[in-house]
Simulated assay, not measured.
Amino acid sequence: MAREVRCGDERLGHVIDARFVVRGAVEGSLAEAQLVGLVVGPKRRMSVLGYERAEQDRPALLNWFFGRRQRESFLVDWDDVASVDGDAVELREGFTRWSSRLR
């Protein structure tokens, strides 16, 4: 089940994805991944399995479908997360909404 995202008394949606960056590679092992943010879907609880991340490798119909499905989703920096408690994520006041689409 997706965690609900709130800021104060305002319900913003649910966590539908997480964004990581990969920092360098250690020879003989996997690179270190660092959590940098959460993608919040105001209307949907389900992820689209990463299909919203890159448009150039899919047919136009899939781009349209996944773009419409997640058009109101946004990315929140991990630094803007005040707490994760039970089934809810609380954001700090004044958090920034970033585009969730990767180019």
Rank of each mutant, 00 (worst) to 15 (best):
20 F>T: 07
26 V>G: 08
16 I>K: 05
17 D>G: 04
12 L>N: 03
58 R>F: 13
24 G>V: 09
92 R>D: 02
72 E>A: 09
75 L>I: 06
48 V>I: 07
19 R>M: 10
86 G>D: 06
99 S>C: 10
46 M>N: 11
8 G>M: 04
44 R>K: 10
94 G>E: 15
21 V>P: 00
39 V>A: 05
49 L>E: 14
86 G>M: 00
80 D>I: 09
63 N>G: 09
68 R>Q: 13
34 Q>R: 07
34 Q>G: 03
44 R>Q: 15
58 R>D: 08
29 S>P: 04
92 R>Q: 10
9 D>M: 04
13 G>R: 02
2 A>C: 01
86 G>P: 04
73 S>D: 13
73 S>I: 06
86 G>Y: 01
90 E>A: 13
35 L>E: 04
16 I>V: 10
82 A>K: 15
94 G>Y: 15
97 R>I: 08
85 D>P: 08
77 D>I: 07
39 V>Q: 04
5 V>I: 05
1 M>P: 10
46 M>L: 10
56 Q>N: 14
12 L>V: 12
62 L>P: 00
96 T>Y: 13
56 Q>W: 13
6 R>F: 14
97 R>C: 09
26 V>E: 14
91 L>D: 06
30 L>Q: 01
27 E>R: 13
65 F>C: 08
90 E>P: 07
62 L>E: 08
43 K>Q: 12
55 E>Y: 13
98 W>S: 00
43 K>E: 15
19 R>H: 07
76 V>H: 03
93 E>S: 07
22 V>L: 12
96 T>N: 11
26 V>P: 07
19 R>V: 14
10 E>C: 12
75 L>S: 02
20 F>K: 15
70 Q>I: 12
39 V>D: 11
56 Q>A: 14
70 Q>W: 04
18 A>T: 15
32 E>Y: 09
103 R>F: 02
91 L>N: 08
89 V>E: 01
96 T>Q: 15
23 R>H: 11
73 S>T: 13
83 S>N: 02
35 L>Q: 04
69 R>H: 06
89 V>I: 07
76 V>C: 03
26 V>Y: 07
46 M>K: 05
67 G>R: 06
79 D>W: 10
93 E>V: 15
62 L>H: 03
74 F>I: 05
86 G>F: 00
103 R>A: 12
51 Y>M: 11
14 H>M: 00
93 E>T: 09
98 W>R: 09
52 E>C: 07
77 D>W: 11
74 F>A: 15
100 S>A: 15
100 S>I: 11
91 L>T: 14
1 M>N: 05
13 G>L: 02
36 V>Q: 11
92 R>T: 07
35 L>Y: 01
33 A>P: 11
67 G>M: 07
71 R>C: 01
95 F>A: 05
102 L>P: 01
26 V>S: 10
30 L>N: 00
14 H>V: 04
36 V>P: 10
39 V>L: 06
47 S>C: 09
45 R>D: 01
75 L>V: 08
98 W>V: 00
57 D>K: 03
63 N>D: 08
4 E>C: 06
36 V>Y: 04
92 R>P: 01
92 R>L: 02
